[in-house]
Nucleic acid binder design. Structure first.
Lengths: 346, 346
DNA sequence: CTGAAAGCGCTTACAG
DNA sequence: CTGAAAGCGCTTACAG
């Protein structure tokens, strides 16, 4: 009912002032006579008038829109990240447009110009590879963009990431500490910083504890459930099975569990398992997966904060970086390991 | 580098034509001399010029933006739904702004005007209660909105929902068919159509099979994991425990499993369990949850289709409704039930 | 086939 | 304290 396509001029007529004055009232400009202000406000309230953001945005050369690109919003890790972004953005008066690239770089490359064309004020990009030409170009051009979760190889840009190297180191060390040495890893593609760094942390942890690194125990591929499934099948068919698997994401771990169940093996009795991300799946008592918490909600929130600082700061070379530290979440999926080791020794 | 804030007028100058002509070329208006078109296009390409959508949208009185409000994007059901919306929207040249209400009606009521103020062309609303004053007002005002998943009590508006009544009926009947009669239900709040209808389907199935409905076996509350957990604890402490639990969402079922594990009981040996939604959690082999698939991706996709049809159709009272049919996904979480029943009888 | 002009709904110096 | 005017970047009748 109330929808009549009122404009600032209609209000002006009703209040017997110029539309300039109405605009001032709406923007809380102090230099308007109190009486006039009242009169205008009354009409605004009575009519339920809301200024059209398109006009304002065009005038102000901004959109109050943030674009966010993630691999897939269905991945619980990114959903949580997105929620952190959304909440912070909303709180700051911004709305956010989400785009999923489906891990297909082409799609990421399509979305980027699209979001820009669309006129977002800035972009939060969560799915870059180590080299991502379009993103690098935007950075060079001083376009407001902050990378989250995944890093580029190059430096000097805004990002908030997690210390994947340390996270992987810590969780691998945990397996070693409780008695494992035959530890396999399933991780993401080598051209993505997160999986790259996790593999590095895994290797270093083994090395620091004098455990040889076996290429048979390392499988890389896309960050999808199916990889966890296929890799595990491969591991389980090897002459020398690993005692423990480090799935570099809880999502991969889901696939691992699928395979383990099919083989009618038990976790952790027959095979220990650890994940990465601490999703709700991991915390379910039936799954009970030892994992690493990244604090992705916070990550999203911080990213928005940085982006908005960048908007405010006049310097287009505003740079701010944050690296989050890992938290090890110990659960039952590798809980019996010490016992196993002792059995072996005994 | 390429970012110079070019406008249509800059291009016009370079090409020695009026900005009107540039606009025509950009909009593929046929009445431009081929030679002129070439000249303009060349400059457009060379400079990498992209028309500013704000100007275009202001002129065209549209935004090419769809607003979507969901309870929580972290809930896998809504993530999937959102993905359906996003993909279809993108395909049709629209972007979508997501907002989570956190099941707090106040927040839903805040978002609605906010999205409108923001100037979206229409809204896809996935979290309404049976009565939702603001939404009903929008509908009455002929604002382009389509409800998905949840319905209002009133009629005559665009929606695409799932047949929750039948879904619940089918899965309850399945439990009965394989031998259960002591069946409890944990469902969402009574003021939401989905939980309302699921409860109805459950009751009807029992009734049709001559099984008495016990109020001790019915627990309603918010659609969160914790409810599943608490309700299950309550059921398990009753003198007469149920033999099976129907959790009216997989998310609730997660909580049920948490509780069952704590009680060191086994599913389905000690207690059968079925869910609703067919999320990835349910399909994990370790969880292996019998459930109902709603086809939420499709739901989202269809909703966008309806919204866009509504945009195109000049009639503001364009109405289109879709009701999706349930698919029963049988897994191990209630697989042994017949055996149990036989044991009892024998 | 092309351009000058008006308009989309707002903001903001500039005068008064 | 208030208003006329110009402008944000585009589109689209209206003339020619």
């Amino acid at each position: 009912m109330a929808h009549k396509k009122l404009t600032i001029r209609d209000i002006a007529n009703m209040a017997n002032v110029s539309h300039t004055t109405v605009s001032r009232v709406l923007n809380k400009d102090p230099r308007v006579k109190e009486e006039t202000r009242q009169r205008v406000l009354e009409i605004v309230n009575k009519t339920g008038f809301k200024p059209d953001p398109r006009g304002r945005n065009l005038s102000l050369k901004r959109s109050k829109l943030i674009g966010m690109v993630v691999p897939d919003i269905r991945n619980p890790f990114y959903a949580e990240l997105a929620r952190g972004v959304e909440d912070k953005a909303c709180q700051e008066g911004y709305s956010v447009i989400f785009s999923s690239t489906d891990f297909k770089p082409e799609r990421g490359e399509t979305y980027l110009p699209l979001l820009q064309e669309f006129g977002v004020d800035g972009i939060i990009f969560a799915s870059c590879r180590l080299k991502e030409p379009l993103v690098e170009e935007l950075i060079k051009a001083r376009y407001p963009i902050v990378l989250v979760s995944r890093k580029l190889k190059s430096k000097d840009y805004n990002y908030v990431v997690f210390d994947n190297y340390r996270g992987a180191y810590v969780i691998t060390k945990h397996l070693i500490d409780i008695g494992y040495s035959e530890i396999a890893i399933i991780t993401g593609p080598p051209n993505v910083s997160t999986s790259f760094d996790r593999l590095k942390g895994y290797r270093q942890a083994l090395k620091d504890h004098g455990i040889p690194i076996k290429s048979d125990y390392i499988i890389q591929g896309p960050f999808v459930k199916k990889l966890g499934y296929l890799a595990t099948n491969k591991f389980l068919l090897q002459k020398k099975r690993p005692e423990a698997i480090f799935a570099a994401s809880d999502y991969l771990a889901m696939g691992v569990i699928d395979a383990v169940e099919e083989h009618k093996l038990q976790i952790p009795k027959d095979l220990a398992l650890v994940g990465f991300d601490d999703t709700e799946f991991a915390s379910n008592r039936r799954i009970d997966l030892t994992t690493i918490s990244q604090g992705e909600y916070e990550m999203g929130s911080i990213a928005v904060g940085i982006l908005i600082e960048r908007f405010k700061s006049q310097e287009t070379n505003y740079i701010h970086n944050v690296v989050l530290e890992p938290k090890l979440i110990i659960r039952g999926s590798c809980g019996f390991n010490l016992a196993i080791k002792n059995n072996k020794k005994g």
